[in-house]
Design a protein around this nucleic acid. Structure first.
Length: 526
DNA sequence: ATAGGGTTAG
C-alpha cells in the first residue's frame, strides 16, 4: 500500500490546477484529490469542472465531474450551465442545459438564483421562442425578472425571433441601461432588417464599446450595406477603438461583396500587425474575400495553411471555386471534405450545385441533390431549388423544371421564376418565358424591368403586334426604370457602367476584350 | 459566477 499523498492546501490546489495544460494533467490532479478526499468537496469539483470545460473544452469530463457530486449546489449547477453555454456550436448542448435546469427546479437544495437565468436563457434562445416565454414567466413568478441582467437576456431572446415590440418593452423597463442592453436592442433591429432604426439607436447610445461598433458593422453587412459597414469601421478607428477579430471578419465580408481587393489586403495587413489573431472567422473571411475578388490562389493558400478548418472554412472555398467556374475543383474539394470526415450542410450544397450548373454537370448535380435530401436528410430550401432549376433549365429540360416547381414545398419566389426565365432566353422558349415573366410581375408589380424583358422577348421572337402593344406599356413605365449598373476600380479611379452603356472612352476595346475572354473561357473550361 | 458583437448561400 502506497503512503497517502502529502496534504494540500486549497491555494496549492488552485496553483497546480492553473498549470494543467492537458486533460491528462487534470486527471492526475483529480485522482490526487480523490485520494486525499478533497474531491468530495464542492469547491474542488467546481474548480475542476470549470477548468475541464472552459480551458480544455472537454464537456463530457465536466459532466462526469458534475454527476459524481451527490447534491450539487447552485455554484456547480451554474458552472455546468456556463460550460454548456460556452460550447460551440451553441445548439449542441442547448437541450442538455435545459434538462439540467428542469432537474434543478425539482431539487430543494439548489433553487436557481439570478445567475442561473441568463445561462438557461441562452440555451432557450437557440431552441425556440416558446421556451424563452416559459422561462420569462418562470422568472416572473420567482421574482427574478426585476434583475436588469435577466431582462437583458430576455430582451435578446425576443429580439432573436423578431419580436421587437416585446424587446423594446423590456428595454424601456430597465432600471439602468448600459452598453450591453443598447447593443442587444440594436442587433435585434438589424436582424429584423430595420437598419434605419438601428442607426438611430446607435447614434443615440450614450456609450459605445468595441462590441457595440461590431454590432452596427455586422448589422450593415447582413443587410447588404457594405460601403456603410466600411464607413462605420473607419469611424470606429478614428474615435480610437481597436477593431478585433469580429470587426475584421465583418469588414472582410463587406470587401468580398464589393470586390475591393485592395482594402481587403489592407485589412489582412491590419490583422497581421495588430495581433487580432487568425481565428476561424478571420481566416474564413480572408478565404471568402480573396475568393470573391478573384484571387483564388490567395484563397487556396489561406485554406491550406489553416489547420483548424471548420465546416464554414470548407464551404467558403467550395463556394468561391464555384463562383468562378472552377467546377471540377469545387467538386474535388467536396470529395476531400467528405474524406476528411466533415459532414456537409445546406450551405455546402448551394455551392456544390452551383458548381455543377456552371460546369454543365446536370446528372452529377441531380445526384448530389438526392444525396442531400435522401441520404443526409437535409430539407431542401428555396436556395437549392434555385440551383436545381438553373441546372435543369440551362440543359433545356423544361418539363423537369416545371415538375420541380410544382413539387416544391415552398412558394416559388422571384429568383425561381428568374432562373426559369433565363433558361427560356437561352433556349428561346417564348411561351414559357412569357409565363415566367407574368409570374414575376405578379410577385413584384413595381418592378418595371419585367415589362422591358417582355418587350425584348417579343422583339426577339418577331411578333410585331405584341411588340407594339408592349411598347405602349413601356412608355408609361420607362421613366421609372432604374438601369442596372456595375463598377470596377482601376488605379484608384472608379469606372461605372450602366446596362447598354457605351459612353466609356475605351468602350470599344472593352467590348472586344470581353468577346476574346468569352472565347478563351469556352476553350479552357476548368 | 450572470447579459450584447462573428465568416459561408440560388
Amino acid at each position: 500500500m502506497l503512503p497517502a499523498p502529502p496534504p494540500f492546501s486549497h491555494g496549492d490546489f488552485v496553483a497546480v490546477l492553473s498549470r494543467c495544460a492537458t486533460l491528462a494533467h487534470l486527471k492526475q490532479l483529480h485522482a490526487h484529490s480523490v485520494v486525499t478526499a478533497r474531491a468530495s468537496t464542492q469547491p474542488t469539483t467546481f474548480h475542476l469542472l470549470r477548468f475541464a470545460s472552459l480551458r480544455l473544452s472537454c464537456l463530457p469530463y465536466a459532466r462526469r465531474l458534475f454527476d459524481s457530486t451527490p447534491y450539487p449546489n447552485v455554484f456547480l449547477y451554474s458552472a455546468m450551465l456556463s460550460a454548456y453555454a460556452a460550447a460551440s456550436p451553441a445548439q449542441a448542448y442547448a437541450r442538455d442545459a435545459l434538462a439540467l435546469f428542469l432537474r434543478m427546479l425539482r431539487r430543494v437544495r439548489s433553487a436557481p438564483n439570478q445567475f442561473v437565468y441568463p445561462l438557461v436563457l441562452r440555451a432557450a434562445c437557440v431552441v425556440g421562442v416558446q421556451l424563452v416565454k416559459s422561462i420569462h414567466s418562470h422568472a416572473y413568478k420567482s421574482g427574478f425578472h426585476a434583475h436588469d441582467v435577466i431582462r437583458t437576456s430576455l430582451l435578446d431572446g425576443y429580439s432573436r425571433y423578431g419580436m421587437m415590440l416585446d424587446a423594446r418593452k423590456l428595454f424601456d423597463g430597465l432600471t439602468d441601461r448600459n452598453v450591453v442592453s443598447w447593443t442587444a436592442l440594436l442587433s435585434g433591429y438589424t436582424r429584423a432588417g430595420k437598419v434605419g432604426d438601428a442607426i438611430v439607436l446607435f447614434e443615440r447610445m450614450p456609450e459605445r464599446d468595441v462590441a457595440a461598433w461590431n454590432a452596427m458593422i455586422a448589422g450593415c453587412t447582413q443587410n447588404g450595406l457594405f460601403l456603410e459597414a466600411l464607413g462605420i469601421c473607419s469611424r470606429m478607428v478614428e474615435e480610437g477603438f481597436r477593431p478585433n477579430g469580429t470587426t475584421v471578419a465583418c469588414v472582410l465580408s463587406a470587401c468580398g461583396h464589393l470586390g475591393m481587393l485592395k482594402i481587403g489586403k489592407v485589412i489582412h495587413g491590419y490583422a497581421w500587425r495588430s495581433y487580432v489573431g487568425f481565428g476561424s472567422s478571420v481566416v474564413n473571411g480572408l478565404i471568402d474575400m480573396y475568393g470573391k475578388c478573384g484571387t483564388l490562389k490567395g484563397a487556396r493558400w489561406m485554406f491550406d495553411e489553416f489547420s483548424d478548418k471548420s465546416l464554414t472554412t470548407w464551404n467558403c472555398l467550395i463556394n468561391c471555386l464555384a463562383l468562378h467556374g472552377h467546377s471540377k475543383s469545387a467538386i474535388a474539394v467536396f470529395g476531400e471534405m467528405r474524406d476528411a470526415g466533415i459532414e456537409p450542410d445546406e450551405v455546402t450544397f448551394v455551392g456544390l450545385l452551383n458548381a455543377c450548373t456552371h460546369g454543365g454537370f446536370v446528372d452529377e448535380g441531380l445526384t448530389y441533390f438526392e444525396l442531400m435530401c435522401d441520404e443526409l436528410g437535409i430539407e431542401p430550401e428555396i436556395e437549392h431549388y434555385g440551383c436545381i432549376i438553373d441546372l435543369l433549365g440551362r440543359a433545356a429540360r423544361f418539363e423537369d423544371v416545371m415538375n420541380v416547381i410544382k413539387d416544391m414545398k415552398v412558394q416559388p419566389d422571384e429568383v425561381i421564376w428568374g432562373s426559369l426565365l433565363n433558361a427560356c432566353r437561352i433556349h428561346r422558349q417564348l411561351e414559357l418565358a412569357e409565363f415566367a415573366i407574368r409570374k414575376l410581375m405578379q410577385l413584384n408589380p413595381n418592378n418595371v424591368n419585367y415589362v422591358v424583358m417582355l418587350a425584348n422577348l417579343y422583339s426577339e421572337g418577331g411578333s410585331w403586334e405584341q411588340v407594339t402593344k408592349i411598347r405602349k406599356l413601356m412608355q408609361e413605365d420607362m421613366g421609372k426604370k432604374v438601369p442596372g449598373c456595375s463598377w470596377i476600380e482601376v488605379d484608384r479611379k472608379t469606372h461605372m457602367f450602366y446596362s447598354g452603356d457605351d459612353t466609356h472612352p475605351v468602350s470599344e476595346d472593352i467590348c472586344n476584350t470581353l468577346v476574346e475572354l468569352a472565347a478563351s473561357m469556352e476553350m479552357c473550361q476548368d
